[in-house]
Write a protein that binds this DNA or RNA. Structure first.
Lengths: 276, 276
DNA sequence: GAGTGGTCTAGACCACTGT
DNA sequence: CAGTGGTCTAGACCACTCC
């Protein structure tokens, strides 16, 4: 065996965590049900509240429970959310750019970024200008401080009771896009055909899209927006970089997704040997 | 502004965390340097060791420091490791299957799974048989308990002083692969041409490869193997599912990557409009 | 107002690391 | 061996939620 999985010498908090985990897995503690309060657990298990907190912290990191100040700890309702992000989707969106608007309407830009059907979404956007940070300037290959059009948005799942799916931000170089005033107008959202059609209206064709993925703990603001714990859980950060046929970076799109309830899926379709 | 970033009422542990973070960012605490001990910090900042631990926990989650029992807390050396996982790579590997062995040798299966050059790798594999768990049986579409060929491996970065890049496991249905005894022989690793050529030797052609990505806290064993903290940090779990032209799942490959030092990159190349 | 979790203190013993 | 972090105790005050 590679690893020891003894329960010989597990610390007490880990034993309590295992115990509660079994109760959740078995349904003894049903989804939505309250976990006994910290002081109650401390009393019944005969340990200090510090140890109890240590145990609950582990369960939070596993995404099994959610803690709200003043209200207590509850078993989480939904577990894992599937988010498709098939590279084919980018091609699909590109192919649709030349279609008339009424055909483009059947899917919005929200769908493009998450791969979930539009009718299941609540999508909210907000526009403003912002100077490029060093980080963004480096990605765009422009000078720090250059004015960017900054579009922030958040999406919620209507079917799951308004459960937040993600928050994000899109950046465009303002000088590049202002030739079409509609692109600066938030009331035009959701734009039929998505970002690629927006770029098409100013004469831009995409060559490739790069997805960069990292995971890290959420900021306090992200934790609030996503309804996850500020400590314990982690988030996916997905940076989508769109590059046009002149090799310019034309859009950068950062999405923050709750790590404990998101699964990302990429499909790579392969050519047949016989077709070579 | 969307989020408040006040320092008005930050708890004391968060203030200490911010303070240390600034020292690390500014280079005052250089990579590899020891962070003062917990009791020392408690004394100099006039707070309890509990609060100090709370602060260090936050820095661990950010991947800025690494704590070793008995030895202390140190500023982490390397930060972010780039791992390419271009869908094109799968196609590239597929195209090479028909090449003679001496041409296939220039890249091994290790490269396929991580996208890093072979000469930078230490790659270790180990083979055994294992009955299919419910989870794996479901993915393969077989009965639980069916014998699987189980190949575990771990990779390290030679250039970064043996820094662990990932641990993982590959599963094949034993009945499907045993017609070629070489596939059951660990001494044949690394196999020139990678998994796709291994499958080719038993008459299997892949149609598509699906990557599924989740993030979660590491198990204790994973934390040991990857050299990360068992608490605080999170890992990427990448499940690569290979599907052949008969729509059978022929290989499942689980990789565990340290979340605080891994960046995953997917590139989607788009067809030109003019070429339509 | 009663109960909850968030923060914090001032101790303690242990296993482990380095010398 | 001395010093480190891991675990643990038995308290305390606060802001917050719910009734």
């Amino acid at each position: 065996m590679l690893y020891v999985t003894d329960e010989d010498r597990l610390p007490r908090y880990a034993q309590l965590a295992d115990d509660l985990r079994r109760q959740i897995d078995s349904g003894q503690l049903a989804p939505g049900a309250p976990v006994p309060s910290e002081s109650e657990l401390a009393a019944t298990y005969g340990m200090s509240r510090t140890s109890v907190r240590n145990a609950l912290e582990a369960l939070r990191q596993l995404g099994l429970v959610r803690t709200t100040k003043g209200s207590g700890t509850h078993v989480r309702e939904q577990r894992q959310q599937l988010i498709r992000r098939v590279p084919d989707r980018y091609q699909w969106e590109k192919d649709r750019v030349h279609l008339p608007e009424y055909e483009r309407r059947s899917a919005g830009s929200a769908e493009q970024d998450t791969g979930l059907p539009t009718d299941r979404f609540e999508f909210r956007a907000q526009y403003d200008d912002t100077p490029a940070t060093d980080d963004l300037a480096h990605v765009f290959g422009i000078s720090p401080g250059t004015t960017l059009l900054h579009r922030t948005y958040r999406t919620r799942d209507r079917q799951a009771g308004g459960f937040p799916i993600g928050v994000g931000a899109s950046y465009l170089v303002r000088d590049m896009v202002q030739s079409n005033p509609d692109l600066l107008d938030p009331t035009k959202e959701p734009w039929p055909g998505g970002t690629q059609h927006q770029l098409f209206t100013i004469g831009i064709e995409l060559d490739r899209i790069i997805d960069e993925l990292v995971t890290r703990p959420p900021t306090r603001g992200e934790a609030d927006a996503l309804g996850i714990d500020a400590k314990g859980t982690s988030v996916f950060v997905l940076r989508k970089i769109s590059i046009d046929t002149a090799d310019r970076v034309v859009e950068v799109n950062d999405s923050v997704l709750p790590g404990d309830s998101t699964k990302l899926v990429y499909v790579a379709k392969l050519r047949r040997w016989s077709a070579e």
